[in-house]
């Protein structure tokens, strides 16, 4: 078995590998960055505001949600609670990467998380489970997604929406299909499928009946609880 310390390595070649791995899916991110840039300038944010928000926050769904609350006077706590709820999934990502993060220095482990988002986290986890170094995927993939998000935001600000109706071309499904491909392409056994089923049902119930934006956390925690049931194996880290 490969030691976590070996899997936790990171160098330029691994970052480049991660960048190339997520470059294709990042092209679709440009489309949504453009939609965000356009929506934001139409609401009256300055170009510098919009670019800074995309560059510093780098979490699309929460940025769109903030625009919904935008105005001459903006409710600070409501924005922060909304952003926290939508981005709370990052807490799960940091926790699930911890077995490999703890092999790195304290400064490095927090630096590695700065660009964490759905796609590059999922790809990093997939690599770790296949006993391959994953942090190149997290950092390099994150750089690809961030670059695309910034290019898209800029296009939206200066040229309007790159594609008038991305939904008509199915482009809104690119990220969902990518994440699903990672789920379906992973390991499958009775235990995993049970965990998926519980997570799916719990997230749907939370989506329907619990406060907005709670479904990812509720579904993931419910799936995690299934992991405590007897059965399955403990050898895999």
């Amino acid at each position: 078995m490969t030691e976590p310390s070996q899997l936790s390595q990171l160098n330029g070649a691994l970052i480049w590998q991660g960048f190339r791995h997520l470059a294709p899916i990042s092209l679709f991110v440009i489309v949504f960055g453009a939609a965000f840039g356009l929506a934001a300038v139409q609401l009256g944010l300055t170009e510098a505001n919009v670019l800074a928000m995309s560059g510093l926050v780098f979490a699309g769904a929460s940025q769109f949600a903030a625009l919904d609350l935008w105005g001459d006077r903006i409710p600070l706590f409501t924005v922060m609670i909304t952003v926290f709820a939508i981005n709370a999934r990052h807490l799960l990502m940091g926790a699930t990467l911890y077995p490999w993060l703890r092999e790195t220095s304290i400064g490095k482990r927090y630096a590695l998380m700065v660009l964490a988002s759905d796609a590059n986290w999922a790809l990093a986890m997939q690599h770790f489970h296949q006993k391959k170094p994953g942090f190149g995927m997290l950092v390099g993939g994150g750089l690809a997604l961030w670059t695309a998000w910034m290019i898209g935001t800029g296009l939206g600000i200066y040229f309007g929406n790159a594609i008038s109706d991305p939904k008509a071309y199915g482009l809104d499904m690119a990220m969902g299909c990518f994440l699903l491909a990672l789920v379906v392409g992973g390991e499958k056994n009775v235990r995993i499928v049970t965990i998926w089923g519980v997570a799916a049902v719990a997230s749907i119930l939370a989506y329907l009946y619990l406060p907005e934006n709670s479904h990812v956390i509720v579904g993931a925690l419910a799936g995690g609880l299934v992991g405590l049931l007897p059965g399955g194996d403990d050898r895999d880290r």
């Binding site: 999934r89 799960l92 990502m93 926790a95 699930t96 759905d118 999922a122 986890m125 969902g176 994440l179 699903l180 990672l182 789920v183 992973g186 995993i192 965990i195 998926w196 519980v198 997570a199 799916a200 049902v201 719990a202 997230s203 749907i204 989506y207 479904h215 990812v216 956390i217 509720v218 579904g219 993931a220 925690l221 419910a222 799936g223 995690g224 609880l225 299934v226 992991g227 405590l228």
Partner: peptide
């Protein structure tokens, strides 16, 4: 188990 659940909870 939680790491296997995050994407499913996003997608469902």
């Amino acid at each position: 188990a939680m790491s296997a659940s995050v994407l499913v909870a996003i997608l469902a």
